[in-house]
Design a protein around this nucleic acid. Structure first.
Lengths: 212, 212
DNA sequence: ATTCATTGAATGATGGTTCATGAATCGGTA
DNA sequence: TACCGATTCATGAACCATCATTCAATGAAT
């Protein structure tokens, strides 16, 4: 005996709109399930069977929405990084013209988003090497896009004469690593300080380098 | 047909000293081979068969020296971190009494060692989550021991009145992340600057926060 | 009736770990 | 010296388990 016994009822009809919304929902369910499992166990320990169960569908269906397992990993990681890429620059825009305020605002938002997804950040660090060349390229691109506003703000401050001349890209890099650091070294940092304290202390330390 | 065909001639005799030296040599060969493979392919893609071949011995023999595959991983990572733990504090001791000079010396050495083992550092970041609880504890301990001299030097400078009062542990943390960052974000940093330039620029930025 | 979504057992490949087998070396003995 | 168990070192094929991926069969919608 074999083959399908109970097909899950389709969520909605066959119209293009219905189809598109079903595709979105399925993809989201898969990614949500996969992310939850990977955060707990890691990519290699995650079986597609487990993802299917957690997402409430069959294994075969996952392959309708993603080419293969690695493709799922890529989508999970990209999802996270896209949130950074969208949130951080937006926060800086809302901070007005002052480069210092922009940096403070952007860094603060960056840290907050990271704090909310600490596990996912660790996942991205751990598993991004599992991706193929194209996947890694995409990750690097997203990371660059996220922090370029930092670089630009520092450079603007220097040009205006508000900051000491320093390598703007390196300052941006340090802000990024400091934000990532809250997730990477949470075991070391969190026992001694809250997120808010961390943000303030780091802003004080890292932006002191910009003072004339 | 089956079972052993050609046993490799024993390197030396059965005396305690000979035994100990053989054990050391075997362990070293296994770790060298395993590290090389993992750096290229990652832990999960590394087969014990491949390690055995690269180390010039049989699979079974590896299990005489390590309990299992994860045990090999732990040993590889611990090896790297122990080098940091030994080198960094030593470099600071050789820098005399000035806290600033100590920090500069320690950070510089830290970065140099990391540069020499960039792949291994990435490996440690990627795979340390694969370890069990005890393994992760050991890693955290080694990391703490490595950078505690940074914290102590900063604190000493503050106490002496040479530095502005800042959270010493956070400065130490930032120096560590900046050193790790040379490996983690080499793709971003290296195109624009050499290791020496990176060290100088980072010292300038990070220690500016200490100026009165 | 046709088309598309969905199922899940079967396939095929991989690889960690064990262990029966054989070689090398030893201390003791004649 | 020459030989003999006993002991330790070393081998690698076989065992067993785990999955990623496929695809023929089935159900629902039109």
């Amino acid at each position: 005996m074999s083959k399908a016994t109970v097909a899950q009822p389709r969520v909605s009809g066959r119209s293009p709109a219905a189809r598109e919304s079903r595709v979105r929902a399925r993809r989201a369910a898969i990614l949500r399930a996969a992310a939850a499992i990977m955060v707990r166990t890691g990519y290699h320990e995650m079986s597609m069977q487990a993802v299917a169960e957690a997402a409430g569908m069959s294994v075969g269906l996952i392959y309708q929405y993603f080419g293969n397992k690695q493709d799922v990993l890529r989508a999970v990681i990209v999802d996270i990084l896209e949130e950074f890429r969208d949130e951080v620059p937006a926060a800086m825009l809302s901070a007005g013209d002052d480069p210092y305020a922009q940096l403070a605002q952007g860094f603060s938002r960056f840290c907050r988003v990271i704090d909310a997804k600490r596990d996912a950040v660790l996942l991205a660090y751990r598993e991004s090497q599992t991706l193929d060349g194209a996947g890694r390229e995409e990750i690097m691109r997203l990371e660059r896009e996220t922090i370029d506003p930092f670089r630009a703000a520092v450079q603007a401050g220097i040009d205006v004469g508000a900051f000491r001349p320093v390598p703007a890209d390196l300052v941006a890099h340090n802000l990024k690593l400091a934000a990532h650091g809250w997730a990477l070294k949470h075991w070391d940092l969190a026992p001694t300080r809250s997120l808010e304290e961390y943000v303030q202390e780091q802003l004080d330390l890292l932006l002191a380098a910009l003072a004339l």
